Computed example of a mutant assay.
Amino acid sequence: MTAPTRVLICDDQVLIRTGLATIVDAQPDLEVAGECGDGRAAVDLAARLRPDVVVMDIRMPVLDGLEATRLLAGAGVEHPVKVLVVTTFNLDEYVYEALRAGASGFLLKDAPPAQLLHGIRTVALGAALLDPEVTRRLVGKYAARIRPAEDAPRDIPLTPRELEVLRLIADGLSNSEIAGALQISQETVKTFVSRILTKLDLRDRVQAVVYAYRQGLVT
């Protein structure tokens, strides 16, 4: 049997934190590695407990969830941790900032338990939680901020076919849609996506979309 996915839960409201922990611990393939009430504690606990996923609130004392996410999963972090941001604030700006900080997914606290559990499992597997169209809309909206105007595209270590797949990912297409567009199998698409993430040292599709915008591959 495979070891359960270990989840660190960070929320400053005790009732919500307890509720999330109860939902997670009820699953045979998940377990709560720890709980905390502020971003600084999340960073410290993650270093000690090495969870697979951190469920992170945004507005918290001491250190907010966005800054904690940057410290856990942002660019340059030696041992990044997958972060699923769960918040009451359904604002594009928060979603964008969470993704920019390094989060792999974003959920609202009023999401049903099944959606939360799906989110944790999805992020643990290294996939982005956001729907491709939502990702495309958000990253497209903030593309100018993601890619500084003075940045020129650099040499990209991808084959022409891999570049084509990357552009389609950035356009918001799912694996099945990419397969249809290129007339290849979904398994082949998965192979291309895996190669792209490995070659570019990216964690998931969200980071791939941001990379594509930064490099000027999409507008």
Rank of each mutant, 00 (worst) to 15 (best):
L71H: 09
T69V: 12
G76M: 12
V77N: 10
V43A: 10
D57P: 01
V53K: 08
M60F: 04
P51G: 01
D57K: 06
D52F: 01
L71I: 13
R50H: 15
E78T: 15
R50T: 14
G76Y: 13
V53T: 01
V62P: 06
A75N: 12
P51K: 12
V43H: 03
A75K: 13
A47L: 14
I58W: 02
P51N: 08
D52N: 15
L49G: 03
P61Q: 03
V77W: 01
I58N: 04
V43F: 00
D44H: 12
A46N: 07
L72F: 01
M56P: 06
L49D: 11
H79I: 12
R59F: 03
L72G: 09
P61D: 05
A73H: 06
P80I: 09
V81K: 12
R50K: 15
T69L: 06
D57C: 04
L66S: 04
V77C: 08
T69M: 09
V53R: 11
A75D: 11
M56A: 05
L45Q: 15
A42H: 07
D44Q: 14
H79C: 14
A47H: 08
G74E: 08
V81C: 15
L72M: 14
R59C: 11
A46M: 09
R70N: 09
L63P: 05
T69W: 02
T69G: 14
P80V: 10
V81D: 04
R59T: 14
V53A: 10
L49F: 06
V54W: 00
L71N: 03
P80N: 07
L45W: 00
H79P: 00
L72A: 11
D44A: 15
G76P: 01
E67L: 08
L49K: 06
V53Q: 08
T69F: 03
E78P: 00
V53F: 02
A46K: 06
R50V: 06
R59N: 15
R70E: 15
I58Y: 04
I58R: 04
D44Y: 00
G65M: 13
D57A: 01
A46D: 07
P80E: 12
A42W: 07
E78F: 05
D57Y: 06
M60W: 02
G76I: 15
V62N: 13
T69Q: 08
